Amino acid sequence: MTAGARQDNRLTELLRTNTGTVIEKWVGAAAALLRGRATQAELTIDFRELFQLVLPLAGQDGRDISGPAFGEVRSFLQEYSRSRVRGGFTPSETASSVFSLKHEAFALVENGDDPNLFRQALAFSALLDALGLWTFEAFSRAREEIIREQSEQLLELTTPVVKIWEGVLAVPLVGTLDSARTQVVMEKLLEMLVETGSEHAIIDITGVFAVDTQVAQHLLKTVVAARLMGAECIVSGIRPQIAQTIVALGIEFGDIVTKASLADALRHALRRDGVDVVRREVV
């Protein structure tokens, strides 16, 4: 190894020699920033792994971290950011965990008089800046992905398809009906029609806040999809206010059966199957 190569690696050697002290102070600074929301033991595990990944990169140009040499550290920071999203941390707190290592690196060279060592410290600082910004972006991507996953899960939970009688399915809708939700309703309803062999499907809109032209179109699409599967569709939950709105908007439901309540819709479906519901007097 040449003298120049040894000189170029001085910061790396300093960091490696003082690993324990650097990580301890780094963890302490981050723990103070997080105000007890992460234990020092947890931070030590994460920071030690990150330190071991960053250490070999100390002598590299960090202005572009998209290359294969930075693949491992990018993967680590991506998972680290995702765990911080689930832990309720902010993107600034997450990125600061990377940025705060700069202070400890500069502390190692602040009393030195070697300009090459100081230049390498500046380059290392630039590398940490790039990694910190990448962490911030990874946090934002992970948060958007988690929000999207949670939205999809919530959408599944708020659009149940239930079997309420032999051959009769019901879809109780609550809230706002939009294109994305209509698609979920269609898919789940059609799957259940095939799975159960039901011939009647009741779409109950008692919990739908308002019905406009767009909502009506979504309902009609769902009804048509069910009919193509050979099932009769009944729309229930037509309250007086919604009936007035439908008339005022000139919305035509055509030959679709509509009922005021889910009970009325179920009674209609049972009668179509030759089943009469009779109130029995209690003696």
Score class of each variant (00 low, 15 high):
L173Q: 10
L220Q: 06
V168E: 04
R181D: 07
E195F: 07
V185A: 05
G207R: 15
Q183N: 04
K188V: 05
L220H: 07
E195A: 15
K188I: 06
K221I: 05
C233R: 01
A201W: 06
P240F: 07
V168T: 11
L189W: 01
G167P: 11
L189A: 12
A231N: 05
A226I: 02
S198E: 00
V185F: 03
R239S: 15
E232D: 09
A180M: 09
L193Y: 03
Q214D: 14
A226Q: 02
P172E: 02
Q241A: 15
M192H: 12
G167D: 09
T176K: 14
T182E: 11
V171G: 04
G207I: 15
G230D: 00
L169Y: 07
G197P: 12
D212S: 13
Q217P: 03
S179M: 07
D178F: 09
T222W: 00
L193S: 03
P240W: 04
V224I: 08
L228T: 04
Q217H: 14
T213F: 10
Q217V: 05
L228A: 05
K188G: 07
V235W: 04
F209K: 15
R239F: 09
L220R: 05
I242N: 09
T176C: 06
M192F: 02
S236A: 13
V211Y: 11
G230R: 00
C233W: 00
D204N: 15
A243G: 08
H200M: 14
S198G: 13
Q183Y: 00
L190N: 00
V224P: 00
A170K: 08
I238N: 03
A243I: 11
A210I: 15
D212R: 10
E191C: 02
M186C: 04
H218T: 09
V171Q: 06
A216H: 10
R239P: 10
M229H: 02
L189Y: 00
A243V: 12
C233L: 03
C233E: 01
K221Q: 12
A216W: 11
T182S: 15
H218M: 09
V215G: 10
A231G: 06
G207M: 13
A210L: 15
V235N: 03
V168F: 07
S198F: 00
T206M: 10
R227H: 07
L220E: 03
E187R: 11
T196R: 09
Q244C: 08
V211Q: 11
L189Q: 01
A243K: 07
L220S: 05
V174Y: 11
L173G: 12
